[in-house]
Design a protein around this nucleic acid. Structure first.
Lengths: 336, 336
DNA sequence: ATGAAAGCGCTAACAT
DNA sequence: ATGTTAGCGCTTTCAT
């Protein structure tokens, strides 16, 4: 690949003038600029990023450490949002899939240090608290937070998400909700339980005994046990039997569709289902389509990247982003 | 961050000796090496990749252009496979999500040129033929191929996959298969239809009129129409009615589960279903679990990266990788 | 508006 | 086994 020197020779100018044209410095004669730009286009020159980094002492590289994120389809939007934002700002995002605490984490860290990354975004699959080893590179946490609050974090407003989801449910006239929650070890689980409980209270409904954990973990392997919970609940007399099932995530909701079908119940007619995620393409392909509270992953990714670029060393703050309710047929008005 | 010069000063050696230690050159006195290594560990030195690139004229960067890949959960394994392989070989993979023919493609290309990437892997969501603009960087195609055969390509052996899937189906005793295929514009669709037809013929079964397109595209939006096809087929008399439905992909299979349920049929009891993908977590969460032919995405990603590293400029060849059958309850032996 | 010189941090090539 | 020198391609600094 040609260098600026070669262009300068061809154009009969100095190196510096070429550099000015490339860096859009306005202090260049228009005719000179045009001549140089023509040569650049002709020989297909691209500036050498390594040389630029070295001399300017700015890498324009932002690292993105994805703890299992890229294996989970919904959280890919975290990556897309971050990359789009990086691009808009002329930054280069370097993505690494890592496993928590594993050697892949250290390897990624040293690669990023080698590239003199200006900041690193650390993203997790689930909203959780993390404890990270010290690092010389400023870090933004995405979908997770530092228990000691020392890092800027971008997380979903799980409490608010749950509250507004519950508000929709009650506004439609449902009065006997059940919340099938994720494992209590997950931060979002507690926040959502609170959000739903508070919204319910305002409608005179007590969520105590209406919240069940529908997930079991054994040996690190996760299984849904919604079938057990539901077969018990749906046997209750009609006036106490649930009229709507709120699920902690879309794949749990999918499981619930099948469980209800086993019990001879049809979603959208006999019972309503809502959830959290808007997982593509499951939520839209379930029949009937699943009404669900979309998590703001794309916006979270964008926000984290903006923080990483604009104030990597800024004071630690926590951004909680709101969701968006996606209305599909699984939450028709109740028949009873 | 400290430089090699600083280390050299502290160790009382020349710059070059430090460089030798860092690059594992054996021609260094053990005691000198240890002294220098101690200093490196103490000050947490990491070599400057930009300087290294510049001097050595080797970037160790391999680009990965993902055409919509990272939005589709199964094809993420393409990325994981490639990244793992890159890492093992001490290469840095730079990932870009792009849209085909869009400005994002050009932007990614120029970024990769700026980093002097040694090769670029171009990956697509679906197995397809592509026509790419000229590029100065050697390119490996992943999950797609150049119609003129000018590039090395790594693709799934869709014909073979379909044949072995069909062999399992017939070995289990099914005799009245239907293949609900993807859009005929997809390369895999034709290959699979051939594979299944050839396998069927060996069992004395004629697949003509047993293959249906279950997908409709209008205005770029894809919908499944398996419900229409199935409601017609399942009305046939018992001796010609399908006993197994082969689906072109797992999400279509999911759609089929719901359609069959509407028709009062239970998968695994009244009718069998098999598919292609092994899409996580859908395939395992369907009830009963979906028997499916897993696509070798992880291995394909690895293979493409190995080609990119070892013979980026090598003669164009096409690697067709085999799949693996995942056996779950949706393909129990037929009841009739 | 343009240019000359220096040097970022590293390694290739060539001593010693 | 170790050191010296040069220079990769660019931008910063300082002149003109």
């Amino acid at each position: 690949m040609a260098s600026q020197r070669e262009i300068a020779e061809r154009a009969g100018t100095s190196l510096k003038t070429v550099s000015r044209v490339i860096n859009r410095d306005p202090l260049v004669n228009t005719r000179t600029r045009e001549r140089i730009e023509a040569i650049i286009a002709q020989i297909g020159y691209e500036p050498n990023q390594a040389a630029r980094m070295m001399r300017s002492q700015r890498s324009d590289v932002i690292g993105f450490l994805a703890e299992g994120v890229a294996t989970t389809s919904s959280s890919i939007d975290l990556i897309r949002g971050a990359q789009d934002a990086a691009w808009e700002r002329g930054k280069q995002m370097m993505l690494f899939n890592i496993e928590q605490g594993a050697s892949s984490h250290r390897l990624a860290d040293s690669q990023l240090t080698a590239f003199r990354a200006e900041a690193v975004i650390y993203a997790t699959r689930y909203h959780q608290a993390v404890k990270l080893p010290q690092s010389s590179v400023p870090r933004i946490l995405l979908n997770c937070f530092d228990a000691e609050g020392r890092h800027t974090a971008v997380i979903p407003d799980d409490y608010g998400l749950a509250r507004s989801l519950a508000d929709v449910v009650f506004a439609r006239g449902y009065r006997r909700p059940v919340f099938l929650n994720l494992s209590e070890t997950i931060v979002a689980a507690g926040l959502r339980a609170s959000g739903i409980s508070d919204a319910a209270r305002e409608h005179g409904i007590d969520m105590t005994r209406r919240i069940h954990t529908a997930v079991e973990e054994r040996e690190g392997h996760v299984t849904f046990v919604a079938d057990r919970v539901l077969s018990r609940l749906m046997q209750e007399p009609e006036d106490t039997r649930p009229d709507v099932i709120i699920c902690g995530q879309d794949i749990l909701a999918m499981d619930v569709y099948f469980d209800l079908s086993e019990l001879g119940l049809k979603v959208g007619r006999d019972i309503a289902v809502v959830s959290f995620d808007n997982l593509d393409p499951i939520a839209s392909l379930l029949k009937p389509g699943l009404s669900t509270m979309e998590l703001p992953y794309y916006e979270m990714g964008r926000a984290a990247m903006m923080m990483a670029i604009d104030s990597p060393e800024g004071p630690a703050e926590t951004l909680r982003l709101p969701g968006r309710f996606i209305d599909r047929a699984s939450l028709n008005a109740p028949s009873t």
